[in-house]
Design a protein around this nucleic acid. Sequence first.
DNA 1: GTGGATGCAAACTCTTTGCAAGGGA
DNA 2: TCCCTTGCAAAGAGTTTGCATCCAC
Lengths: 127, 127
Amino acid sequence: MKRHSRQRDAVRNALCSVKSHPTATVVYDMVRAEFPNISLATVYRNLAEMHQSGDALMLTTKSGAVHFDADTSQHSHHCCLTCGGVSDVFIELPNLCEIANETGCDAEYYSLMFYGECDSCRSKVKN
Amino acid sequence: MKRHSRQRDAVRNALCSVKSHPTATVVYDMVRAEFPNISLATVYRNLAEMHQSGDALMLTTKSGAVHFDADTSQHSHHCCLTCGGVSDVFIELPNLCEIANETGCDAEYYSLMFYGECDSCRSKVKN
DNA sequence: GTGGATGCAAACTCTTTGCAAGGGA
DNA sequence: TCCCTTGCAAAGAGTTTGCATCCAC
């Protein structure tokens, strides 16, 4: 039976409160503001639990960094080639799974990551 | 100046000779047939080099396993939810980067991974 | 002969696990 | 009280690095 814990709430709230896509250690730093003694293992445990229960996405970028996202609706992501930051991309796309399934490829869902420069890095380059 | 080495050739050939998408340790095992003393570090070094020079893709699946692909043309992949195997998906898709760019998102290229069951695992389930 | 590439082992990063102590219900 | 959750530390997996040796040029 699952019990309530303040640490678990803090991890969930930390992830849900941001639109950025923090890594485990970033979530750790966020939660430590409230729970200075929280263990990194606890953060990993709760993030893994959220992922397994379907409450969080795990996004692995080209560099191998693992980012978490509390928005589990089907949407795409963008990874900045300069700063490595991950952001949401909400664009209208055809039903990619359907296209794949029509060709005999079993696709239940997909992960789509665009690579390029984020707005922030693009404007810095111009300066 | 870059020099020639038989080990490097062996790593490149191993990756280019298969349509599967081996992980570093699988490439290591392949190359060891020819070079029993080759070091895993050498395999990693040469795979990283191929990736940096644009001669190989690095594909990270949901589970975090890193697979290599010598086919660097823009195409999609499929990862089996049962066995974890990665395979190519050559389907006609709209120009996703163009769609993203039109919305102001800078996309130079993308990585698209479908998740579902591979043919092999699907037929096993039926038995 | 020179210096890039290798093999080995150690280091390193990220993540998971074992276990005793803590704390919700 | 019960036993799930935590914190700590140690283990583990995957990958990288330092360095002496090797070998292509």
